[in-house]
């Protein structure tokens, strides 16, 4: 019995320790102000691998989710004779919730796991160590550009996701099911507010991007440099990022939309 309590306490301490370590790590990464001359090309390269390469999956998922929303929305709303509200429904769901959240989950799976594995392998093959021995701080050279890239790419991807989703919804709703196009857009425009809905969605995705990138690079940097260690770090990245995104989404939604 005592053993169980002790192990519970140890688990708690471990969790607190890892929070402390990742916070310290983040401070170390952000402390170094990126030098524009050397830092910029590195950032571009990471934006390419983190952002551009995630574009395909984001666009395809966005399209399908929008189309499904269109179909489902139509079936439900047509019972009440208000199919025209389909535009409003699709846009609000995508812009407020699904855009940021689903993009973040896809991002964690596509880019986050890749970041973790890459950094973990660099650690295992002593590339990080050798960089340090060459007088180059790997936190600034390797970690910082990846963190910033995730931070920047995420809102861009989320916004693209929402737009493609709305377009997919329109494809189904207007072109296939025959909702009048004018009321589709009109309903949407009268109910979606730029600051309250669109910008709050963007803020959400900025937060998610930061958290996902942070978890991914930290897991990579902190992993046990063996093949088993890297694989478990990659799994942890996806699991932790997804949980963090869903949990934070609730908190952010409560703060942003919870007051009425």
């Amino acid at each position: 019995m005592i053993d169980r309590i002790a192990s519970l306490g140890r688990l708690g301490l471990d969790i607190v320790t890892s929070f402390g370590r990742s916070g310290q790590f983040l401070a170390g990464v952000l402390a170094g102000v990126p030098r524009p001359v050397t830092g910029f090309p590195l950032l571009i390269k990471q934006l390419y691998s983190v952002g551009v390469l995630s574009l395909a999956i984001v666009v395809v998922s966005g399209l399908f989710i929008g189309m499904v929303l269109g179909l489902q929305g139509y079936t439900i709303l047509s019972d009440y004779g208000s199919e025209a509200a389909i535009g409003q429904m699709i846009a609000l769901t995508l812009v407020r919730e699904l855009g940021p959240v689903v993009t973040a989950l896809l991002f964690a799976g596509r880019a986050g796991s890749a970041l973790t594995a890459e950094i973990g392998l660099m650690k295992a093959t002593e590339q990080l160590s050798s960089m340090e021995m060459m007088g180059v701080d790997p936190l600034r050279r390797v970690i910082a550009p990846r963190l910033w890239a995730g931070f920047i790419a995420m809102p861009v991807l989320a916004v693209i996701f929402s737009v493609v989703g709305i377009w997919g919804g329109m494809l189904v709703g207007v072109d296939w099911l025959g909702v009048f196009e004018g009321s589709f857009w009109g309903n949407m425009q009268s109910s979606v507010d730029f600051v309250d809905d669109v910008m709050n969605g963007v803020i959400k995705s900025v937060v998610f991007g930061f958290v996902c990138a942070w978890i991914a690079v930290y897991q990579g940097y902190d992993c046990v440099p063996t093949s088993a260690g890297i694989s478990s770090a990659t799994t942890k990245t996806v699991v932790y990022s997804s949980l963090a995104v869903l949990g934070l989404d609730f908190v952010l939604t409560a703060v942003m939309f919870g007051d009425f």
Partner: peptide, 20 residues
Amino acid sequence: VGLFMIAGLAALLVLALQVS
């Protein structure tokens, strides 16, 4: 990457003008 960022801005513009 430049195109990617422009696509993001354009998407935001669509959300602003067409959707909201």
